[in-house]
Nucleic acid binder design. Structure first.
Lengths: 346, 346
DNA sequence: GCGGATTGTGTAAACGATTACAGAGGTGCG
DNA sequence: CGCACCTCTGTAATCGTTTACACAATCCGC
C-alpha cells in the first residue's frame, strides 16, 4: 500500500537502520549516503508511519483534548490557544467533542490510549474517578474548568467568581441597588461560579434580593426570553447582569424592541467579552475571560509535565478576569472604547 | 509502564490470542474463559494500544482535519458538524489548525501519515499538488471550500456565488440601485465567490457600478472602518452588502454611532447568518450557510470513500444557501422573525 | 468406534518503525 | 606493527497488537 522505510532502504542501497538514522538525524552517517537516502525518500514520497513509530518510542507527540458539547466561540478560542502552544512545542491535537453523557466520555478517554501523550479535559461530565479508572497509572492530565479537580490532577480555571464580584461592585458603584442576574445552565461550572460571585457581592453590598435570579442557558434565545420575566415583575431592576454575553445580547435586543432604552432605562452587563460585544449598540460592558490563554496555559502545563516526568505536586491555577467597561451600563457617554483597549481575540 | 494484552493473558491464564479474540468479539471462545478474561481486563484497567493496533489492522478509525487560521464561529460549527457525523460512524478526529503558510501545511499533512484513515482539508493554502506530493497514493481526501479542487479530489463547497446573487436580487427588488459591497480577504475562496456573485447580479440588474467595492477582512473591525469610506464618498449607497455578518455588524455599529438609521437611511445585509444576526437591532438580513451540514457531509463523503475503496469518480458537491430576510433592509416593519424560521445552529 | 465437522485454544508471524550491539575499515600513536 | 579509537553501517530485538495456521478435544451420524 503505502511506502515503508524498507523500500527507501532498498532504493538507497542501505539498511533500514541507516535510513532511520538519517531521517532522525541521529548517529554518524556519511554525507553521500545521507544524500542518497534523502533523495530516495523524497522521490518515493516516504512519510514515516506515526503508529509504528510511537509504538517503539513510546511517544506520540500528540495531545488529547476532551470537550463537552459547546456552544459558541468559547470552543474555538480555547482550541486555538491550545493549538498555538502545542504547535510551538511540536505537538499535535487529537480533539473529541460533543460527547454529552458520561459513558460516552469514558469511552473517549479509553480511545485515547496509545494515541496521545497526555490529556486536556474540559468535560464537566468526566468525574476524576472515572478518569482514573480508564487511564494508565500516572497518565498526565490537565483539567480545565472542571468541578472537583480536588487533589487528583493538575487543574486550571478562570476566576469566574472574582469577575462576577467585580462586576457587581462596579454596578453598585454606579448607584444600582437592584441588579437582576441572568443565570447560565445549572450543571455548568462557570455558570455556577459566576452566580456565586454575584450573590456574594450582592450581599456584601447590601443590595435588594427578592426574586432577582432568572434562569437561562447561555444562549441568545434565553436572554431574549428573560425580557418577559423582567418586565412582568412588580419591581423592575435598574441593571441586569447576564452570566454570559450571548444572553446579554439577546436581552439587549428584546429591550430595544420594546422601546426600553439601554442604558438610560436599564443597564446591561455580560460576561466573556466576546468580540461582538464591543460592536453592538450600545457597546456591552463585560468581563474579559482570557480563553485562548487558558488553552495555551493548559497545553503548557501538560507538556511541561510530560517532559519532566510526573509533576512534583498537583498544581491548581486560576487565571484572572478583567472588567471591561463600555457604555451599556451608562458609565461612558457613547464614546466607544477602541481596540486599543486590547484585542486578545485576534 | 501501562498494562498490555500480555499481562491480561497471564492474569486470566490464557494466551494473548484468546484475549484479543474476546475483546474484539471474533472467533469462538468458551463462555467461562471469556468471563475470566473480561474481568481480568477490567481489574487491570486494560485498554488496547491504538498505535499497535492500527499498525496491524491498517485502520486508525480517525479522520484528520486540516484548518487554516480561522476567525469566529465558522470553525467551531464546522468541527461540530464533522464530529457529529464521525462519532456516529465510530471515528475520531485529529484536528490541526492555525497553520498559515504553505510549508507548515505540508508538514501537517505529512504528520498525519499513519495516524488517520482520511483527511478533510480546509486550508486554501494547501494546493492539490502539494497534497499529492505528501500523501500516499490514493489517500482519501475531501476538500472543503478550497480553490482549484479540479479533478484530483472529492470536494465540497457552499453556494457562495448563488447566495450573493440572490441577495443582490432581493435588494434590487426592494428598489435599491446603488449597493456597495464590503469585501472579504482577497485570498479567501468564499470571499471571492461572494464578490463574483455580487458583481454578476449587479450587472444583471443594471445597477450602479462606480467605486462601490470596499476592502475588508471578515472581521468586525473592518466593517466598522468601512463606515468612514462610505460616508466620505460623493454618492452614498442606499444599501451595503457585507461579505460576512461580522463585518455587517461592525458597520451597523458604526452607522448607529453616527446617527445614521438602519434601515431607514441605509440598508445592511450580511452573509453567513451567524446566531447573533437575529439578535441585533435591527435584526440582520443575511444568507444562511449550512456550516454544520457542510462538515457533516464532508465526513460522510470521506467515510463512504473509506469503506467502499477508492471512489468511482471524483465528486464535487455544492450545498445550497438560503436568503434569510429580517428587518435590516427595510422589508419587515420591526417584527422579529422567531427561531421557528429554523435554527440549525443550536 | 470411526471419519469429519465443529469448537476452543496456543504458537508464531506479521505490521513499520527505533536502537543496542557488533563488526568493518580507517587513522593516529607509541 | 599493534592497539585503541574513531566513523560508518548492518543485524536483529523490540514495541503491543491481530490473525493465519496448527492442534487437541468434543460431537455427530452412521
Amino acid at each position: 500500500m503505502s511506502v515503508t522505510i524498507r523500500e527507501v532502504a532498498r532504493e538507497a542501497l542501505v539498511s533500514v537502520a541507516t535510513v532511520s538514522r538519517v531521517l532522525n538525524g541521529k548517529g554518524p552517517v556519511h554525507a553521500d549516503t545521507a544524500r542518497r537516502i534523502r533523495s530516495a525518500a523524497k522521490s518515493l514520497h516516504y512519510v514515516p508511519h506515526g503508529g509504528a513509530r510511537s509504538l517503539i518510542t513510546r511517544r506520540t507527540t500528540t495531545l488529547g483534548v476532551l470537550l463537552p458539547e459547546l456552544y459558541g466561540e468559547f470552543f474555538s478560542e480555547l482550541i486555538r490557544g491550545i493549538d498555538v502552544c502545542a504547535r510551538r512545542k511540536g505537538f499535535h491535537l487529537l480533539v473529541s467533542s460533543s460527547h454529552s453523557d458520561r459513558a460516552e466520555s469514558e469511552e473517549m478517554v479509553r480511545a485515547m490510549r496509545g494515541r496521545v501523550d497526555g490529556l486536556i479535559v474540559l468535560s464537566p461530565d468526566v468525574r476524576p474517578h472515572a478518569l482514573k479508572a480508564n487511564l494508565p497509572e500516572k497518565f498526565p492530565v490537565v483539567l480545565v474548568n472542571t468541578a472537583g479537580g480536588r487533589g487528583s490532577f493538575d487543574s486550571l480555571t478562570v476566576d469566574n467568581f472574582g469577575g462576577a464580584v467585580e462586576m457587581v461592585r462596579h454596578l453598585a458603584g454606579l448607584g444600582h441597588r437592584r441588579i437582576d442576574f441572568l443565570e447560565g445552565p445549572a450543571a455548568n461550572r462557570d455558570a455556577s461560579e459566576r452566580l456565586r460571585g454575584y450573590r456574594q457581592a450582592r450581599s456584601e453590598q447590601g443590595l435588594e434580593t427578592s426574586g432577582v435570579e432568572i434562569p437561562g442557558d447561555f444562549r441568545e434565545e434565553s436572554g431574549y426570553e428573560a425580557c418577559r420575566r423582567i418586565l412582568a415583575a412588580r419591581r423592575r431592576p435598574s441593571a441586569v447582569f447576564a452570566a454570559n454575553d450571548s444572553m446579554a445580547l439577546g436581552l439587549l435586543c428584546a429591550f430595544q424592541e420594546k422601546g426600553i432604552r439601554v442604558p438610560q432605562d436599564v443597564a446591561i452587563a455580560g460576561f466573556d467579552d466576546i468580540p461582538i460585544a464591543r460592536y453592538v449598540t450600545p457597546p456591552l460592558t463585560s468581563v474579559r475571560v482570557p480563553i485562548a490563554e487558558l488553552g495555551a496555559r493548559a497545553a503548557e502545563l501538560l507538556i511541561a509535565g510530560l517532559e519532566s516526568g510526573p509533576a512534583p505536586g498537583r498544581r491548581r491555577e486560576t487565571l484572572p478576569t478583567h472588567l471591561v467597561v463600555r457604555s451599556s451600563c451608562g458609565e461612558l457617554d457613547g464614546a466607544r472604547p477602541r481596540s486599543a483597549s486590547g484585542t486578545g481575540y485576534g
